[in-house]
Computed example of a mutant assay.
Amino acid sequence: MLIIIISMLNFAYPVLYLHFISKNPEANFTIKDITTALTKNTGRLLVFILGLVFIIFPLLMLLFTLLFLMIFIIIGLPLLLIAMPAVLAWINLSFYDYLTEKTGFFRAFKNGFLLLKQQFWTIVGTTFVMLMLIQIVQGIITMVPYFIGIIYFFSSGQTNMSDPESEGLATMGIFAAVIMILAVLLSYFFNNLVLINQGLIYYSLREENESTSLISNIDLIGADNE
């Protein structure tokens, strides 16, 4: 549970960072301000985690199980490729609304759904491309030390004949640990990139909605004068 909370705090950092930028375009804030905001929102983050795990995830498991079963009738595959980035965008947009607007859990997911529906194909397409690029880059980075380890394993086995098997296994164990740590660090880094991408979408949609609302209010003022 502690790892989940730490991970959620890590994910909340870029959300609050963009929130501070939106409130202070000149970046007139410090890391301490963001850390303080993280501390104050720990309780809300815990509520979001629990709601996500016990309410949202079970529903999503049913949805994706159905889509996986539909793969056998072909139509399930394109639906699955659409649903995955759509669900990710929905959760992230809801997370932004929940954390920055201080809305309730269910209200945040309702607002996130409305934002997603507002420009569905654009958001899904952007999120899909972002995920594909991240998977490619992360795969290339993690495979480099893997291949280096394999090459070293075979070369050391040929050059050192005293106990090549034990030394080779020890070396492979070290490389496996390095790859695992690297994969975890890259996962945190790229997840933050996804969150920043989703944050840009969130604030652009909000700006669009607020501009539309402002224009509507101006039109109403003109109508009242009549």
Rank of each mutant, 00 (worst) to 15 (best):
L2W: 06
I3L: 11
S7P: 00
N10G: 08
A12W: 08
S22R: 15
N24L: 14
N24P: 10
P25W: 13
A27N: 15
A27R: 12
I31H: 14
K32I: 15
T35C: 12
A37C: 02
N41A: 06
T42P: 03
L45V: 05
L50I: 15
V53T: 11
L59F: 11
L62P: 00
F68Y: 13
L69P: 03
M70Q: 08
M70P: 04
G76D: 02
P78M: 03
L79N: 04
V87I: 15
A89P: 08
W90F: 13
D97F: 09
T103D: 02
F109E: 01
K110Q: 13
G112V: 01
L114Q: 13
T126N: 15
V129R: 07
V129I: 15
I134P: 00
Q135T: 09
V137H: 00
I140F: 06
M143W: 08
V144D: 02
I151Y: 13
Y152W: 08
T159L: 12
D163W: 09
E167G: 11
E167H: 10
M172I: 12
M172P: 04
G173R: 07
I174S: 08
V178F: 11
V178E: 07
I179M: 09
I181K: 07
L185V: 11
S187V: 04
F189K: 05
I201A: 12
Y203K: 04
R206E: 07
R206H: 15
E207C: 03
N217V: 11
L220D: 09
